[in-house]
Simulated assay, not measured.
Amino acid sequence: MKVIQQLNSHATQDGDGVNISRIPGFDGKYLDPFLMIDELKSDDHSDFMGGFPAHPHRGIETFTYIIKGGFEHQDQMGNKKAIRAGDVQWMSTGFGVIHSEMPLADAKEGMHGFQIWLNMPSAEKLRAPRYQDTTEAPAPVTRNDQGVELKALAGSWQFASEEQVSSLQDLAANGMLADVTLPAGTEFKHAPLKQTKVMLYIHTGEINTEQGGPVKAGSLLILEPGSDIEFNSQTGAGVLVLAGEPLKQPIAHMGPFVMTTQAELHQAVRDYQQGKFGTL
């Protein structure tokens, strides 16, 4: 496995004072087609109790994955769902979405989850929004003889001689995501993916790669295009695998809106202010 870049998350806040760790990519330099990786991981309710009250989006896809705890999602399209541990929720916001994500009252054991932003091709940024989650079609899991698990969060994956097909397909930029869990003293191997951009985000424990010492939680490894995927963990680890095809297009970003030009960005703000996104 060839790692060409390592990035580390940094602490910040979003929503109503929610403490998160973030790796931003709005400059398009390293993460394309992904825009942002946010991780919420805390057993202290004060870190996340404010949640994410109603807010808009345009021009992106948002991907929420919950490992522990849960949020209630609600949007102007009429969707209202409890997203709990193991669930994934995906919105292709297109022309515009207004939604909220608030902590579930019964999430007593803390919170661990992600919101990941994926850019949309310029030509699709104004199409109708779409929503899907895995509450009725859970993400499939494959376990090999070492106990290493791959959970197919989005897209189709081949692991341990089995194909796992997530109910979430057709993400922008051929996006795919999986969560890999390694018990202590095991390794993960996967053939090269077809996407040009493949990244590993360590969210639990630490891993070792052939290039050097341990890589701790909160780190993102960007792989050389066409590289195989191979790492091990002596202590146990949880790793998100993210893959997509770079869009190589300009990024105009302002808060919850991501467009291609400044003129499109200003139009997004006007449309939202004029109520064209609808109401929650």
Rank of each mutant, 00 (worst) to 15 (best):
residue 176 M to W: 11
residue 214 P to T: 12
residue 218 G to C: 05
residue 151 K to C: 11
residue 166 S to Q: 14
residue 88 V to R: 06
residue 111 M to N: 02
residue 27 D to A: 06
residue 203 H to A: 11
residue 205 G to A: 13
residue 41 K to A: 05
residue 227 S to W: 12
residue 7 L to T: 01
residue 221 L to R: 10
residue 203 H to Q: 14
residue 217 A to E: 01
residue 184 A to I: 10
residue 165 V to H: 12
residue 162 E to A: 10
residue 175 G to L: 02
residue 278 G to I: 15
residue 176 M to H: 12
residue 138 P to T: 15
residue 78 G to C: 07
residue 40 L to P: 05
residue 208 N to K: 14
residue 149 E to R: 08
residue 59 G to R: 11
residue 26 F to C: 00
residue 63 F to D: 04
residue 101 E to L: 05
residue 84 R to K: 15
residue 155 G to P: 01
residue 280 L to H: 00
residue 89 Q to N: 07
residue 128 A to P: 00
residue 103 P to Y: 04
residue 164 Q to K: 15
residue 50 G to M: 03
residue 240 L to K: 07
residue 183 P to Y: 00
residue 167 S to Y: 08
residue 25 G to I: 07
residue 270 R to Q: 14
residue 270 R to M: 15
residue 96 G to S: 00
residue 181 T to E: 12
residue 277 F to H: 04
residue 170 D to F: 09
residue 256 P to I: 10
residue 3 V to A: 01
residue 232 N to L: 11
residue 250 P to T: 06
residue 203 H to S: 14
residue 17 G to I: 13
residue 98 I to L: 10
residue 18 V to W: 01
residue 29 K to L: 10
residue 11 A to P: 00
residue 74 Q to D: 01
residue 270 R to S: 13
residue 269 V to Q: 14
residue 49 M to P: 08
residue 122 S to P: 00
residue 205 G to F: 05
residue 158 Q to D: 14
residue 180 V to F: 06
residue 18 V to D: 01
